[in-house]
């Protein structure tokens, strides 16, 4: 037990990094995903096709590859070549990748809304943006809560991929201690931390689903 208390500080520090990556990714990729979804369903065929290609690329290649590319290869790409420090590089990869997944969730949600809702709004004088903001998206949120919950929980665990950029997240912190002390206890503690994080998320999403169930 004392040993567990001993290793807590570095593991908590690692959890901090994990939570940062998680939170920043979520806050940035949800709006980006929504924007991509709206472009994807827009009347502009060219833009829609472009977004479609982007989503295909992001979902069709491993997130780890994307992260390695942004960190190691992006500096050598002509014109846009920039060298990002590890943390921003990781965030960028996560945001670009998760936005693609969120875009597909939003798109499916938006398309599931009955045409009558648009027509009902239209004959009352709503513009398209007003219809989206006031009528469609509030209903979409309720419908996409289950898949969003899934993705969000996946994101918690995906954050461990940043170990390839040698960042000290929860998993890497645990592994460091395992190698130092020849004990697997840090892995067990790390697993418990992940479980607590996903438990909190699951609970949060359940609360949201209950809140949105009032109008069923």
């Amino acid at each position: 037990m004392n040993y567990v208390l001993d290793i807590l500080p570095p593991l908590l520090e690692g959890t901090g990094v994990t939570l940062q990556v998680f939170a920043i990714t979520l806050v940035l990729s949800i709006p980006l995903g929504l924007a991509l979804a709206l472009l994807r369903i827009s009347r502009f065929g060219f833009v829609s096709g472009l977004v479609n290609g982007y989503i295909w690329l992001m979902r069709g290649t491993p997130l780890m590859l994307q992260m390695l590319f942004i960190y190691f290869a992006l500096p050598f790409v002509p014109v846009i070549g920039i060298r990002l420090p590890d943390f921003p590089a990781a965030i960028m990869a996560f945001v670009l990748n998760y936005a693609a997944y969120f875009a597909e969730i939003f798109r499916a949600g938006i398309l599931s809304i009955d045409r009558g809702q648009y027509e009902g709004a239209r004959v009352l004088g709503f513009t398209y943006p007003q219809t989206m903001r006031r009528i469609v998206l509030p209903q979409v949120i309720k419908r996409i809560l289950p898949p969003m919950s899934n993705e969000t929980i996946t994101l918690v665990k995906d954050t461990s991929l940043i170990y390839v950029l040698a960042m000290n997240d929860l998993l890497r912190a645990a592994r460091g201690i395992v190698q130092r002390d020849f004990s697997t206890t840090p892995f067990v503690v790390a697993a418990a931390f992940y479980l607590i994080m996903t438990l909190v998320l699951t609970y949060g999403f359940q609360r949201l689903e209950k809140k949105y169930a009032v109008y069923d």
Binding site: D114, Q117, G120, L124, F126, I135, P138, K142, Y215
Partner: peptide, 22 residues
């Protein structure tokens, strides 16, 4: 098929357009 807004109460359904549009 009515096309009421299911996420809004009866009163909200009625006041939404006057507020947003007008």
């Amino acid at each position: 098929h009515f096309n009421l807004f299911p996420h809004l109460t009866v009163l909200q359904n009625i006041i939404e357009a006057p507020m947003t549009v007008k």
